[in-house]
Nucleic acid binder design. Structure first.
Length: 697
RNA sequence: GGGCAUUUAGCUCAGUGGCAGAGCGCCUCGUUCACAUCGAGGAGGUCGUAGGUUCAAAUCCUACAAUGCCCACCA
């Protein structure tokens, strides 16, 4: 054995040994234990955050050692809008656009692109030592998965829970698609609040309204005041004249209006503001669309037609100014919605889209949000750390309907076909001529929201995996996608399978750099998992990610911590070298035990109990620390030193303690533990992976 | 506007009722003797502030402060 541990000689060798030996596939066992890997987006490489999958591998390897029938199923996500944006950028570099290619060719190329990324990503997962069952690998656009997704759409549609509606939605003018509420991020912005005079009809008086978006006034349908506002009592029911367009608009009373804000009178633009839309509905106001889907003014905007909306803002203000209708301008801080994927400012628009009803009860008697809320409240699903349950309740209790259609090309095309007035919803296209399919695509989270049961073959002829492994045991993922993904999986899982998709949700934190900053290429603080695993070993990276971290808390990871864990692997290696390579020639079989012998055996017993209890209760950070301290300080520093003058006596205990310890450490550091374990007497050729979890006694 | 979290050694963080911990860094000493990617020893903290509960508080409660994050349709 070399004096220094070299992971390069060890890691790929053992991974092939495990994989070729079929050790990642479930064997029959006393219980079922399953985790579905959160599918990474197939539009690039994995980053260090994905290496947090190590927590799943720890659970999986632990349960496999326990003798459970254990499945960890890998896959990848086509990631709708994001992948389309990424691939469009690729095309841009070549001076092309998706419109040059056309829908079919664009889809084909993007598919190819994701398949190449998948290969790279899977190589990265292998390099980290993840014991995934590759024979069951899935992609969200696989034929069988797509069929199941369509089946769910049809179920919801037939149940009255999916509907098409003309409603106010979030429109991204750059992506030219609608977005769900969740895909809109909000950022603070300082801008101006313009006070504009609207002349009263047949009067020389004015009513002054305040607005942050003067260009939308072209679509105004009313001026609203609070019914209790004494200042404006006399004006309600009168008519104002919209400047620039000289259109008559009513002055109405609505309790939504805040008397304290601005002048207490507000312009109402039902077609471009969610609140105004609501007020418009209550007062049957016309919805005048003045901003088109391309962010240019429509013909409703009169002389401003075809102009960009930001240019129009300037022009409108200049025109109002020239007529003396701008009373004053204030500085104003407010919140603006931007596209989560491309940062473009969202334009509220009215548009016909597909929605999933969150709070309506279907003919089946099921109600998506309520049922999903109940599953957690009743304890059928447990969220760790617990504080996220409160956040979940709060979100689940205040849901708007979920818009699931997207005007993009990449993804599952909506399974709805039209012919004249007929609508057909199904899994296969309808027979006969004249049908055309809805051109929209499903929200990517609609398909990933079904991942736990679609991957297990729900509804297929051979659904044995579903029978055995569903509900899955644990869903381990980042807290940042609790709403996007976890909540949707709970809703759709319960709806389709009548059972929860998983029993426990374990949420990990974000991986940040050494000083707690978010990793980004521009800050040059990104850690590439493959790079760093190549340098220090996958075992060291794995250990660094879990060592001393708690669930749901962000983890700060710098190279120094990984280096520290690399030193630990070397320490472990040398303990092994001492026991295995420098074995005494004569060994006494049954020596009298010294005080130190008794002590180390007692400590081993204790740590077995603590490690088992710790893993069962998801305290991975503490367990990692205990394992670290045991071998380094209790075993190497004290016991190994003590054993030196009496090797013939102590060798059996050294071997016994070391052997059991390797099995305890194996879920955390699979490569080095396998390598050392196989060097122990009578172990060669077997795998530590299936050697059984140490008994507690 | 609502909610959540964090605040512990120079740095990064564990620790949730019982004598203050780890990694990295720092200081001193030590390379025949498993390991210098090491060993032995050491310096360094009134556990954000102020109250309270308790035999006992970093840990539970209350208030405050700082920082971060999430959610939200006030023009």
């Amino acid at each position: 054995m070399d004096k220094v541990y070299d992971h390069k000689h060890v890691e790929s060798k053992w991974y092939s040994f495990w994989e070729n030996g079929g050790l990642f596939s479930p064997k029959s066992g006393r219980k079922y234990f399953s985790i579905i890997l959160p599918p990474p987006n197939a539009n690039g490489r994995l980053h260090i955050g994905h290496a947090m999958y190590v927590i799943e591998d720890i659970m999986i390897r632990y349960h496999r050692l326990l003798g459970d029938s254990t499945l960890w199923l890998p896959g990848a996500d086509h990631a709708g809008i994001l992948t389309q944006v990424v691939y469009e950028r690729e095309l841009e570099k070549k001076g092309q656009s998706r419109h040059h290619l056309g829908r079919e060719e664009f889809f084909k190329q993007t598919y190819q692109f994701t398949q190449e990324n998948k290969k790279q990503m899977y190589a990265q997962l292998r390099a980290m030592g993840f014991s995934l069952d590759w024979s069951r690998e899935k992609f969200t656009l696989d034929t069988e998965i797509s069929k199941a997704v369509y089946q769910t759409f049809k179920l919801l549609y037939d149940d009255g829970l999916i509907y098409q509606g003309n409603r106010m939605i979030n429109w991204c003018p750059r992506c030219t698609t609608v977005l769900s509420d969740l895909e809109v991020s909000h950022t603070d912005k300082t801008s101006s609040l313009w006070y504009i005079k609207y002349p009263l009809k047949d009067s020389t008086d004015f009513v002054v309204v305040a607005t942050t978006r003067p260009e939308t006034m072209l679509g105004d349908a009313a001026v609203a005041v609070n019914p209790n506002d004494t200042r404006y009592k006399a004006l309600v029911g009168k008519t104002a004249v919209l400047p620039l367009l000289n259109r008559d608009i009513p002055i109405i009373a609505d309790s939504f209006v805040d008397q304290e804000f601005g002048t207490g009178a507000v312009k109402i633009t039902p077609a471009h503001d969610p609140n105004d839309y609501e007020i418009g509905e209550r007062h049957s106001l016309p919805k005048i669309q003045v901003i088109g889907m391309d962010d240019k003014m429509t013909k409703e905007a009169g002389k401003y037609v075809s102009a960009d909306k930001y240019a129009t803002r300037k022009q409108v203000l200049a025109d109002l100014e020239s007529q003396g209708l701008v009373e004053r301008v204030e500085r104003h801080r407010y919140n603006i919605g931007v596209c989560e994927r491309c940062d473009t400012i969202i334009e509220p628009q009215i548009s016909k889209q597909w929605f999933v009803a969150m709070n309506k009860t279907g003919k089946s008697g099921k109600t998506l949000a309520k049922d999903a809320l109940k599953a957690v409240k009743s304890g059928k699903i447990k969220i760790i750390p617990e504080r996220f349950e409160k956040i979940y309740y709060n979100w689940m209790g205040n849901l708007h309907d979920w818009c699931i259609s997207r005007q993009i090309w990449w993804g599952h095309q909506i399974p709805v076909w039209y012919k004249e007035d007929e609508v057909y919803v199904g899994i296969e296209p309808p027979k006969g001529p004249g049908w055309f399919q809805d051109t929209d695509t499903l929200d990517t989270w609609f398909s990933s929201g079904q991942w736990p049961f679609t991957t297990l073959g729900w509804g297929q002829k051979d659904d044995s995996d579903f029978e055995k492994f569903y509900p899955t045991s644990v869903m381990e993922t980042g807290y940042d996608i609790l709403f996007f993904w976890v909540a949707r999986m709970i809703m759709l899982g319960l709806y389709v399978t009548n059972d929860v998709p998983f029993k426990t949700v374990y949420l990990h934190g974000l991986v940040r750099d050494e000083r707690g900053q978010k990793m980004s290429k521009s800050k040059n603080n990104v850690i590439d998992p493959l790079n760093v695993a190549g340098k220090y070993g996958a075992d060291a990276v794995r250990m660094a990610l879990v060592f001393g971290t708690g669930p749901g808390n962000d983890t700060n990871l710098g190279e120094s911590k990984i280096r520290g864990m690399r030193n630990f692997t070397n320490k472990l290696w040398n303990v092994g070298r001492f026991i295995i390579d420098m074995k005494p020639e004569k060994i006494k079989p049954h020596p009298k035990k010294t005080k130190e012998d008794e002590e180390i055996l007692e400590k081993l017993k204790r740590i077995k109990k603590l490690v088992t209890h710790g893993i069962e209760n998801y305290h991975f950070g503490i367990v990692a620390e205990m394992l670290y301290n045991f071998i380094w300080h209790d075993f190497a520093d004290k016991y190994v030193e003590h054993s030196k003058p009496r090797r013939e006596d102590s060798q059996p205990i050294l071997e016994e303690v070391f052997e059991e310890y390797l099995r305890l450490l194996h879920p955390f550091m699979p490569f080095i533990t396998e390598d050392l374990w196989q060097r122990l007497p009578n172990k060669s050729g077997q795998s530590i992976m299936v050697s059984g979890w140490p008994k507690r006694n």
